[in-house]
Protein backbone atom coordinates (compact mmCIF):
# COMPACT_ATOMS: atom_id res chain seq x y z
CA UNK A 1 0.00 0.00 0.00
CA UNK A 2 2.78 2.39 0.83
CA UNK A 3 4.86 1.31 -2.13
CA UNK A 4 2.45 2.65 -4.72
CA UNK A 5 2.61 6.42 -3.94
CA UNK A 6 6.39 6.27 -3.72
CA UNK A 7 6.70 4.76 -7.17
CA UNK A 8 4.43 7.44 -8.52
CA UNK A 9 6.48 10.17 -6.90
CA UNK A 10 9.53 8.71 -8.57
CA UNK A 11 8.10 8.65 -12.03
CA UNK A 12 7.01 12.23 -11.70
CA UNK A 13 10.39 13.40 -10.52
CA UNK A 14 12.30 11.88 -13.41
CA UNK A 15 9.93 13.52 -15.85
CA UNK A 16 10.28 17.00 -14.34
CA UNK A 17 14.04 17.01 -14.59
CA UNK A 18 13.74 17.25 -18.36
CA UNK A 19 13.16 20.97 -17.88
CA UNK A 20 16.75 21.38 -16.73
CA UNK A 21 17.78 21.16 -20.38
CA UNK A 22 16.23 24.57 -21.13
CA UNK A 23 19.07 26.79 -19.88
CA UNK A 24 21.55 24.65 -21.85
CA UNK A 25 19.63 25.08 -25.09
CA UNK A 26 19.25 28.80 -24.59
CA UNK A 27 22.73 29.66 -23.36
CA UNK A 28 24.80 27.28 -25.48
CA UNK A 29 23.60 28.81 -28.70
CA UNK A 30 25.27 32.25 -28.58
CA UNK A 31 24.01 33.50 -31.99
CA UNK A 32 20.65 33.74 -30.24
CA UNK A 33 21.76 36.47 -27.84
CA UNK A 34 25.01 37.78 -29.31
CA UNK A 35 23.61 41.18 -30.20
CA UNK A 36 23.35 44.75 -29.03
CA UNK A 37 19.57 45.14 -29.33
CA UNK A 38 17.36 45.13 -27.43
CA UNK A 39 19.33 47.03 -24.81
CA UNK A 40 18.27 47.34 -21.19
CA UNK A 41 19.37 50.32 -19.05
CA UNK A 42 22.12 50.85 -21.60
CA UNK A 43 23.33 47.23 -21.46
CA UNK A 44 23.54 45.22 -24.71
CA UNK A 45 21.38 42.09 -25.02
CA UNK A 46 24.49 39.90 -24.84
CA UNK A 47 25.08 41.17 -21.31
CA UNK A 48 21.70 41.51 -19.65
CA UNK A 49 20.19 38.35 -21.11
CA UNK A 50 22.61 35.88 -19.41
CA UNK A 51 22.28 37.88 -16.17
CA UNK A 52 18.51 37.37 -16.42
CA UNK A 53 19.05 33.64 -16.96
CA UNK A 54 20.92 33.38 -13.69
CA UNK A 55 17.64 34.23 -11.97
CA UNK A 56 15.48 32.11 -14.28
CA UNK A 57 17.66 29.03 -13.81
CA UNK A 58 17.67 29.50 -10.04
CA UNK A 59 13.87 29.71 -10.08
CA UNK A 60 13.79 26.54 -12.20
CA UNK A 61 15.97 24.49 -9.84
CA UNK A 62 14.09 25.92 -6.84
CA UNK A 63 10.73 24.95 -8.38
CA UNK A 64 11.97 21.45 -9.18
CA UNK A 65 13.12 21.07 -5.60
CA UNK A 66 9.74 22.10 -4.19
CA UNK A 67 7.90 19.87 -6.67
CA UNK A 68 9.94 16.97 -5.34
CA UNK A 69 12.05 16.39 -8.44
Amino acid sequence: MSVQPQTQARTRRTWLRVFLIIPFIVLLYPPFYNSNDPTFIGMPFLYWFPLLWILLTAILTGALYFLGA
Binding site: P23, F24, P50, T57, A58, T61
Partner: peptide, 12 residues
Protein backbone atom coordinates in the same frame (compact mmCIF):
# COMPACT_ATOMS: atom_id res chain seq x y z
CA UNK B 1 28.32 33.73 -16.70
CA UNK B 2 26.78 30.86 -18.72
CA UNK B 3 29.37 28.65 -16.98
CA UNK B 4 28.18 29.55 -13.50
CA UNK B 5 24.54 29.24 -14.57
CA UNK B 6 24.86 25.80 -16.16
CA UNK B 7 26.81 24.33 -13.30
CA UNK B 8 23.72 24.23 -11.04
CA UNK B 9 21.39 22.09 -13.16
CA UNK B 10 24.32 19.65 -13.44
CA UNK B 11 24.77 19.67 -9.67
CA UNK B 12 21.04 19.23 -9.11
Amino acid sequence: VPYTILVYPIIF
